[in-house]
Amino acid sequence: MIKAVLVLNTQGKPRLAKFYEFRPVEKQQELIRNVFSVLCSRAENVSNFVDAESIYGQDARLVYKHFATLYFVFIFDSSENELAMLDLIQVFVETLDKCFRNVCELDVVYNYSKMHSILDEIIIGGQVLETSSTEVIKAIEELSRLEAASNSINLVPKSVSGWRAR
């Protein structure tokens, strides 16, 4: 089972944090800090696996991938295949790339809830839901379409903020 999905930037700021097992907020932050301190000390050409037992507890493994200014981190237990998790990170990143057209850190920051929606189409409750980025994007597009179609009040704040931003 996947226990957590984290996206951190190279300064250690969390950009996405999703825990599939309950953890109090303070623990989550502590974990993020610990993960970052391990990741930033690793060299460029080493393996993508880190023993996470000291960070997350018994039987925890961690796999990460480094893209530009972001670390994508999956924490999971021994029932998952490490190499498959590495591929899953790839799927997640590919999906983001297709959604945002060359994803960058700013996209991730400003589209926080969309990131969550995408992740929810890939993983539910720590289990892998879908591994095809095309399928995921189809689902996300449906959501966006519905969102736009419904006569929503969220147009109001947008216009207000647009007016204020000037």
Binding site: P14, R15, L16, A17, V25, E26, Q28, Q29, I32, Y112, S113, H116, S117, L143, L146, E147, S150, S152, I153, N154
Partner: peptide, 30 residues
């Protein structure tokens, strides 16, 4: 949600989530 990610307490928003879920609109529910 964003503030929560940064590690600040957000428990006061819990009931608001329930209200959103109970509302009819799709974006609110989401």
């Amino acid at each position: 949600m964003f503030i929560h990610m940064l590690g600040y307490p957000t428990h006061f928003g819990q009931m608001e989530c329930l209200k959103l879920i109970a509302s009819p609109g799709f974006p609110e529910k989401r």
